[in-house]
Design a protein around this nucleic acid. Structure first.
Lengths: 205, 205
DNA sequence: GAAAAAGTGGACTATTTAGTCCAAATACTT
DNA sequence: AAGTATTTGGACTAAATAGTCCACTTTTTC
């Protein structure tokens, strides 16, 4: 029925508006969850108007999808930066410390931005797919780091690096969830230390 | 303003009604999350009337709290049953298989009933407290099982059993979240195997 | 600089939603 | 059996919500 389909911005001004909307929506979803974030709240926070939101997004679901992508960019960007040049157990421990530090700085509130979205939106096909892809990319960063650790130590490459990276990501997600609920970084620290030991053992480092 | 405070049922009939409401609400929250569950949907599913819901619960938040308690009963009941008599690494591996089997039976949908609630409701003080307590009890079951494993093997009791149980719970939660999003039991299996190895190493079994 | 395209403001509608209220029905008490 | 407490049905309200629509403005194109 609706001929006026969603548009991607065609000018810099439009791009800026769209970005403002997604940014505001991302912050609100982060704080209250997708279901508790209203379009009106997004409009107010982004100082956009209703027609602007519905000009760039077909409906709320599409906006939420953009939020997932935005949040994934942010989280994966951070971790890619932290993991990019990592090639030793010491480096991995430094990454652990950084994650714990980051979590501590927010009093464990909010948990993992992607993990929270995953818990809320994993039963909807499109959002689930987007989140699954993000997790896969995230695991890929670990995998690459483990490969570098292995070659640097002169070990022959093993092929269970993917398994190792999934276990690491699971520890991270579980640790962050417990940290959020128990309001303590302890479970996160314990989970990550366990995973690092596991990596060290498997990589024979 | 409201003199007509929430009432606990005083007759068997009332108790049955309240239970019907909580059961229906629990199923709906499990399927769609708390924010996406409306009182009207609960009324329809439980064949109760609005006045009944507001007779037994002050507002939606109180109903959600009852749902958390109900779900915690259910999940902790299941795991208490599985872990109660566990006193060996073999038993722990059987528990792992049971969890994976259970997850597989639902095609990894829904994730952990408590974990999903935790992700959604950990920023609200009362719900967070209820969830934190549930996780603590859950970890307690692991701790007790590890203690039995240790004494059965004739080892002197170590005092990091609590840490070990938190790492185990984190692996479980992270594994279930990834399983839900990736629609595969693999990350769950990997995370649990890692945690079991870790337990074996720490307990020197 | 005129025409076309892109972007904007915000009023308006349809529904949905949490919560209120009270009269009627049912169960307990003595 | 009368009287009291509990439970129930459902109409009603006020606010919130997703989404529509169109007139108006700004920017780009030729």
């Amino acid at each position: 029925m609706n001929e006026n389909v969603t548009t991607m911005p065609k000018t810099a001004r439009g791009a800026a508006t769209r970005a403002r909307i997604v940014d505001a929506a991302t912050a609100l979803v982060r704080a209250r969850g997708a279901a508790n974030t209203t379009i009106d709240a997004v409009i107010e926070a982004s100082k956009a108007s209703k027609s602007q939101v519905y000009h760039y997004f077909a409906d709320k679901d599409e906006l939420v999808l953009a939020v997932i992508q935005r949040q994934a960019e942010c989280v994966l960007g951070t971790h890619e930066g932290l993991l990019r040049k990592l090639n030793s157990l010491t480096g991995l421990r430094r990454w652990r410390d950084a994650v714990v530090e980051l979590t501590d700085q927010t009093n464990c509130a909010g948990g993992c931005p992607l993990g929270s979205l995953a818990a809320e939106l994993s039963e909807t096909p499109r959002t689930r797919a987007a989140l699954a892809e993000s997790f896969a990319r995230w695991a890929g960063y670990f995998e690459a780091a483990f490969a570098r650790m292995q070659t640097r130590a002169g070990k022959k490459p093993t092929n269970d690096l993917k398994a190792l990276s999934e276990a690491m990501l699971a520890s991270l997600q579980g640790g962050l969830l417990l940290a959020q609920t128990l309001r303590s970084t302890r479970p996160l620290e314990l989970a990550l230390d366990m995973a690092i030991e596991h990596v060290a053992a498997r990589l024979e480092l």
